[in-house]
Computed example of a mutant assay.
Amino acid sequence: MIKYKPEFRESCIEIFKSNLPKYFAEEELAQFENFLDDEIEENYYVIKIEGLTVGCGGIFLDKSNDAAGLSWGMVHADYHHKGIGKFFTQYRIDMLKKTYPNITFKIETSQHTAGFYEKRGFKTVDIVPDGFSNGIDKYTMEMEFIGTD
């Protein structure tokens, strides 16, 4: 796990593009680029394997809604089904629990990955058909976590 730096931008965009059109809509690319250029969070990371950037993702805190969550998490399509996403997602969930205890965790994802997040403790609270794009439904999912000291 390496903290994101601008030199990882192009690799992250390639990871995004490798997941088109199933996991992301083409029109989301501009949003992702804007995020990398102007809205990057303190807790955004990349995963490197043998010198290659194969994944990226982070966590966020939305003070206006008193929620925290997972942001722009993805693994290059060539590295799907190797356990990287599972490991990286759990790492970020553990980071959420440590950094923002006693707050609701949120994620927006699609029908293609909702089951993946359900296995990690998220529950679907809203579904918007074609919410991201034609054929890509928007699932809003939450996880309640009450920290213990």
Rank of each mutant, 00 (worst) to 15 (best):
P129R: 03
D126M: 12
I13L: 12
E118M: 12
V125T: 11
F122A: 08
L52G: 06
S110C: 09
Y139S: 10
F32M: 05
S11M: 09
L36D: 07
K98H: 06
A68Q: 02
I107S: 01
K17T: 11
G58N: 13
Y45M: 07
G69W: 07
V125Q: 00
G51V: 14
T124W: 00
F88P: 03
V75P: 08
F122M: 09
L52H: 13
I146Q: 12
D37T: 14
A67P: 00
Y45C: 05
E33T: 10
N134W: 06
K97H: 06
L52N: 14
E39R: 14
E26A: 07
M143R: 02
C12L: 11
M74R: 02
V75N: 05
T109P: 04
I47Q: 11
G131V: 05
I40R: 09
L20D: 04
D38K: 15
H80S: 11
F87I: 04
F88R: 05
E28Y: 09
H112Y: 15
D37W: 06
T89A: 15
R120I: 01
A77R: 15
N34I: 05
R120N: 12
D37L: 14
I59D: 05
F8Y: 15
C56M: 15
I13D: 02
E10R: 05
Y117L: 02
T148H: 15
E7Q: 13
K119P: 03
M1S: 13
K63S: 15
R120F: 06
V46I: 14
T148I: 15
T89L: 09
H81N: 15
N134E: 15
N134V: 10
D126H: 04
A68F: 07
G85Y: 10
T99E: 15
Y117F: 15
